[in-house]
Design a protein around this nucleic acid. Sequence first.
DNA 1: CACGAACCGTACCGTACGGTACTTGAGGAG
DNA 2: CTCCTCAAGTACCGTACGGTACGGTTCGTG
Lengths: 212, 212
Amino acid sequence: MSAELPEIPEFSPRQNAVLEQALKLLVDGGEKALTTSGLARAANCSKESLYKWFGDRDGLLAAMIAFQAAKVRTFERGAGRLTADLLREHLEIFGRDLLEVLSGDVSLALNRLAIGQASREGSKLGRLLIEHGRRQIDRRAIGLMEAGRRAGLLRFADADGAYHTLYGLVVSDLHVRMLLGEPGLKDNARQAAKAVDAFLQLYGVGPDTENA
Amino acid sequence: MSAELPEIPEFSPRQNAVLEQALKLLVDGGEKALTTSGLARAANCSKESLYKWFGDRDGLLAAMIAFQAAKVRTFERGAGRLTADLLREHLEIFGRDLLEVLSGDVSLALNRLAIGQASREGSKLGRLLIEHGRRQIDRRAIGLMEAGRRAGLLRFADADGAYHTLYGLVVSDLHVRMLLGEPGLKDNARQAAKAVDAFLQLYGVGPDTENA
DNA sequence: CACGAACCGTACCGTACGGTACTTGAGGAG
DNA sequence: CTCCTCAAGTACCGTACGGTACGGTTCGTG
């Protein structure tokens, strides 16, 4: 097929500043607070410029998602030789990072925005959010899974299935609860550690699981 | 510690019909489609009656949540003597029912509504939705957990923790994905079975887990 | 029949938003 | 200095919503 990443709009610094302000407005007051007039006032720009740059309000929202996704680039940990302890540590770090990202103000606000918009418009924003926001973290996790298998530390038939199991163990219903307005956990690290314990019990190979 | 269920507004049949129509509008067109004028037209009632019955628009939304929660009353399975197979079956049925409920049109629409409203208004609707919508299913699951433990089939320190593990294994990130507009699974039963397998591997006691 | 309550249908009001057009001013090129 | 471009600021328009007021109708009750 054709090139899969034609959409790196690469906004100008001025536009980045405006998008930053837009995210701030969205985080502070929800979607209702993000009006074109309000954004123009807060960012010291004109509505006309907003419409020139982003087309219409939906274009602005899409640009906000792309902008935020480009900011939160998760780094691939260089996987050296994996030991059981190292794998566990990497998994726990992944779990903590995941909870950290999902409970972030901006992430929650953008997810709320896309979910609120999901009924109409063919859930365009929802797809955009899943594509841009999840690809990075999914790739990192799948990489971790397969590195663990190559090192003989994990056993599974389906890396994607194993990853989704880990995701469920880490997140459970926390994401939806936070989206609904509940406060997050006090201790993400503890939650991640418990999840990784369970995950290794299910998929692990080695001393940790033999002496159960 | 006073009485915990003072809110059974017990709407009149006419009001029930209007709330039903309101849910239909919400499911079909999202929050934007649920206008007071539109509801009055669709339900053949007057706006004045809407405001007399529900106070204002937020009151209407709250009434819709209470109404729907009152409809989806999950039945407590009478727990006879539990065997391992029976426990597994009950767990799988629970998982299927859970996925069924979460992927339902009305549930998704109400969750989207509450999430969209969560930023402002102190997430009143979100709390309402969690309280009314989850209590039933939580009680059923916790009951199942403790019945399994009493029968010597499950081993855990924290029933709530075990339940949340089961929840995560069953649902993973499906709920959020569906809220964002993705289609649900083709085979809920298979997903529930796999989740229960993993759950019993973690918390089960008996032949299923000994000969791993 | 007469009365009153409930309620439908509609018209109405104020407001606030998305989007467009126009004026002003700053800076860069010739 | 002059012209041109870009964008800020403002004024404006159409629309659509939440909420209120009012006339007409049905229905139960004495």
